[in-house]
């Protein structure tokens, strides 16, 4: 992997091509529960990103030290340690955010994105790529949270980041910010993402087939 292009591919991979939420379908619990307000979604996304980067770096550093038989246990201890530290920092310095996220901060521990990246990437790669992977996947998670929260807050509460967008005549469709609305919104977003990905794949395939056909035609001519 080349240095600079590697960084960008990893970033693109995390945010778009292999987005942990929209493509890998991981971390469903926070994405359903915490996307009623954009501010909560961003806070959650950044907290998870911080944990992801820290745990990826430490796990990558310790990848030769941790015996493979107890690696999952060690990963969970490391992840929960970082989550607890982040929780302490949040309740000391961003108290209102800490209150609105509530129970979901300790639940970052069982966010499968973090364990998945530890197991699939950080435990097999060097420190720097692991840190970048944590950043990319964390931003991908934040991105998905942001998109979903934007849609739900605008439709369900008629506001964005707490600022009312429409006048009093707009009565918000509260179903969108209730749990069923979370499933509806998520389903539709994933459908759109799949459509885009399929189209891109089809295009690539068609281009490949065209190139092949051209090549064959050329060969025939040459013959």
């Amino acid at each position: 992997m080349k240095k600079k292009s590697g960084f960008l591919t990893q970033l693109k991979e995390g945010i778009l091509d292999n987005n942990p939420v929209l493509v890998q379908l991981l971390g469903m619990c926070p994405i359903l529960a915490l996307t009623t307000m954009v501010s909560n979604a961003i806070g959650m996304g950044l907290a998870a990103t911080a944990v992801l980067i820290c745990s990826n770096v430490l796990i990558s550093l310790l990848r030769k030290f941790i015996p493979k038989q107890v690696r999952i246990a060690a990963f969970i201890v490391i992840i929960s340690g970082f989550v607890t530290v982040i929780e302490f920092i949040m309740r000391a310095y961003v108290y209102s955010l800490y209150q609105s996220l509530g129970l979901f901060i300790p639940l970052i521990v069982v966010n499968c994105i973090i364990l998945a990246r530890a197991e699939a990437y950080a435990s097999k790669n060097k420190v720097l790529p692991s840190a970048v992977d944590g950043l990319a996947m964390g931003l991908g998670f934040t991105f998905a949270l942001f998109i979903m929260a934007t849609i739900r807050e605008i439709i369900g509460m008629g506001s964005f980041l707490g600022i009312p967008l429409f006048g009093d005549f707009y009565s918000p469709a509260t179903i969108i910010i209730s749990p069923p609305g979370a499933f509806l919104t998520l389903g539709l977003i994933i459908a759109v993402v799949q459509k885009i990905r399929n189209n891109a794949e089809d295009k690539a395939q068609i281009a490949k087939m065209k190139a092949q056909a051209m090549g064959e035609a050329k060969e025939e001519k040459d013959a």
């Binding site: 310790l62 030290f65 941790i66 015996p67 107890v70 246990a73 060690a74 201890v77 490391i78 929960s80 340690g81 607890t84 530290v85 302490f88 920092i89 309740r91 000391a92 310095y93 108290y95």
Partner: peptide
């Protein structure tokens, strides 16, 4: 032992973070 060591170090780090932030909280 290695698992114990990992747990010990993490517990220490958490305790440190707690003592630094508790007053502010």
């Amino acid at each position: 032992l290695s698992l114990f060591l990992v747990c010990g170090v993490i517990a220490g780090a958490v305790a440190l973070a707690y003592s630094v932030t508790i007053n502010k909280y």
